[in-house]
Every structure is written in C-alpha cells, then in structure tokens.
Amino acid sequence: MADTDQLLETPLGGLHRELGGRMVPFAGYAMPVQYPAGILTEHLHVRSQAGLFDVSHMGQAELVGEGAAAALERVTPADVQALKPGRQRYGLLMTPTGGIFDDFMVANLGDRLFLVVNASRKHEDFALIEQGLPAGVRLNRLPDRALLALQGPGAAAALGPVAPALTALTFMGITAAEVAGVPILASRSGYTGEDGWEISAPAEQAEALAKALLALPGVMPAGLGARDSLRLEAGLCLYGSDIDETTSPVEAALVWSIGKRRRMAWDFPGAERVREELANGAARVRVGLKPEGRQPARGHTAIHAPGGGAIGEITSGGFGPSLGGPMAMGYVARDHATDGTALDLMVRGKPLAARVAPMPFVPHRYAR
C-alpha cells in the first residue's frame, strides 16, 4: 500500500509533516520513516545524545479489577502476580501450541495493570486477553492516548530539570508525572538498548508534549528507520519478523521472560512444547550473525552450512551504524548455533561468509 491516504494517523501526524518527516505505511498507520537529517544521523544521534520517536500506533490498555494479574497469567507465562507496584516487565502472549502470539509490556500501577502491545496485533491481543476474563475484571482500551519514546544517553540530562520524578526511576520503573503541564505516565524503558523513557499522554496534548521534549537540549526527532537499526544492534526482536506464532520462547531465546514460578507450575498456554524443548533442546534457535565484509544480508536470506545445504533463515538484517558493519539475526539448526560458527548467507544466489555472533551487537546501557 504505497498510498498513505487510507492510513490511520497518530495524534502527531501533523507535527511529523511539519518537521519534514517522510511518511510510509506501517501497521495500518502513516508513520515517519525518517526526517530530513536521515536515518544514519538519527541513529547515531540516539546513541550519542537523544532522539524522540512517535510510537502512538502501539496499543495501550488497562486491566482493572480484583484478580487482574491472575487473569492475565491465563495467556502469558510471565509472573504478573509478583510484579511490584511501580514496576514494569516484558512478557509474551502465547498460543495453545506454544507459539508466540505477541510480545508486550505490563506494568503494575497499584490499582490496575497497564499494558502496551504491538500495533500490528493490538486488536487480536486485546481480544485474546478479554476471552474468559473472570467477573469483575475488565480490559479498558485506551485509544485516546499517544505514546512517545525519548531514547539515548543524553535523555536523562535533558529530562531531569523538567521531570525529576522520571529521572528518579530505575530501568523498568514506571510513574505518573507531569511534563510541560501535560499529565503523563512514563516508564524507564525502550526499544533501542539505550537509557530512556516511554511516555504515555492524552492524545489531545501529545503535540504540545512532543514540542516540549524536542525543545530540550540535544533532542532530535527520529523515525522508524533509526528505530529498526537501533533495536537490531540491541538484539531485540520485532514481532512478525523475528518472532511469530510459529516460534517458541525456547527457539527465540526468550525463556528469561517466563517466570520461575510459572516454570514450576507449567500452567500457561503452550507449556507442553516449552517444557519439551527446554528438556531436549529446540530444533532451531535464534542467533546473531555477522557477515564478513560490508555487504548486509536482509530478512528471508537463506542460511547454509559452508558449502552445504540450507540450515536456516535470516529474520532481520541490515547495516549497523554504531557497529560500523552489517549485522543480522535469524534461526539456525541447533548444531550450527555456537558463537563463532562459520556459515554462508545466500545473497542473490552467491554465498556471503558470516559467523554466529553474540547479541547484543552494541552493549545495552539501561539505567539499572
């Protein structure tokens, strides 16, 4: 769909155009892939100072009522009941056959749970969570809220003077606060591997908030292009590319998101497959890949054993501006997954030498 006329707009659509954003279709929305500075500049600016992303296309909701945490655990292996007020965690929604329905964030706000899910899956996710909710527990969708991500090592210095409550948080902490007169809910988290915040605000005040954040020292707007290269350098999965209903948490190397208590009870959807793969190993596993030379290998590139047959496929790949070279992640047969293993990436029918590499490609710098 090249035409952006039929696409949904976020509350910041007008501002993106004002800033010279190049709009492209993404998950049913018109979103800025880049601004005039370009993807490379935006990416490196986020790694050195701070960038502001519009992620308002994501789904936001609240789960309210007595027993909300236990109700959410019917569809996720995350330990939601152990989540303390003011804290957030990453979780997976599961299919009955052990595939990943989506990944999401859940926060305990004391009197309710706050959820953020992927844009492309939000309607399916909310329907899944709502199925069979016990009496007294309800899901409130929040379509009238925007979501902004301020990311980078300079974010704290920029934000501190205007929102000290936010800089007091540690990684995965969440609190209500006010920035430039706008009431917000912010978690110290993000999708770049850098320190930063994801900031939920009323849609009608989103533009005022975005302008206030962009006016802070060292902050520039950043689009989807930089967001993708940053998250790949950080070794973070993109739903629909690196994880989907065919991949299990074991294959995807996301077992850490399954709570210890849940791994003893095995009472979540798909537990049988997860348990079997943990005991006997998954047939394929997600790994990092570093192609030799400068040529990147993109998603859906076949991975072969050197001089041999196909053993897997790249799911995300590109050039890492901070890494200074190409990088990829994908799935390979388990016996080819050890760091340093030599592989061939079949780029335009020709083998491109590569090695299995540890992720993240660029170290995380979260404020722990």
Rank of each mutant, 00 (worst) to 15 (best):
D3F: 03
P11M: 08
G13P: 00
L15V: 04
H16F: 03
R22G: 05
V24L: 14
V24Y: 08
Y29L: 05
V33T: 08
P36S: 07
A37T: 01
I39G: 02
I39P: 00
T41R: 15
H45Q: 06
V46N: 09
R47M: 06
S48Q: 12
Q49C: 07
Q49T: 13
A50P: 02
A50K: 00
G51Q: 06
V55Q: 06
G59V: 00
Q60T: 05
L63V: 06
A71Y: 04
A71L: 08
L72H: 04
D79I: 06
A82R: 10
L83I: 02
K84Y: 04
P85H: 08
R87A: 07
R87K: 11
R89I: 02
L93V: 13
D102G: 15
D103S: 05
V106Q: 05
G110N: 11
R112M: 03
L115I: 09
V117R: 14
R121E: 12
D125E: 15
D125K: 07
L128R: 14
I129Q: 07
I129W: 13
E130V: 04
E130F: 10
G136V: 07
R138F: 05
R145I: 00
L147T: 02
L147A: 01
L148S: 03
Q151A: 13
P153M: 09
A155Q: 03
A156D: 14
P161K: 08
V162G: 04
V162N: 09
P164Y: 02
A165C: 02
T167Q: 04
A168E: 12
L169D: 07
I174V: 15
V179A: 08
I184W: 04
R188M: 12
G190C: 12
Y191A: 01
G193W: 04
G196R: 08
G196S: 01
I199C: 10
I199K: 04
S200E: 11
A201R: 04
A203H: 05
Q205K: 11
Q205T: 06
A206C: 05
K211S: 01
A212E: 01
A212S: 10
L216V: 00
P217L: 03
A222L: 13
R231A: 13
E233H: 13
D244W: 14
E245T: 15
T247D: 02
T247E: 05
W256C: 09
R261G: 14
R262E: 10
E277R: 04
L278C: 12
A279T: 13
A283E: 13
A283S: 14
G293C: 12
R294S: 14
Q295V: 15
A297W: 14
P306R: 06
I311H: 00
E313F: 11
E313S: 05
S316P: 10
G317W: 01
L323R: 10
P326L: 04
P326R: 10
M327W: 07
M327L: 15
A328T: 10
G330T: 12
Y331W: 07
H336E: 00
M346E: 14
A354R: 06
A357V: 09
M359E: 11
F361M: 10
V362P: 09
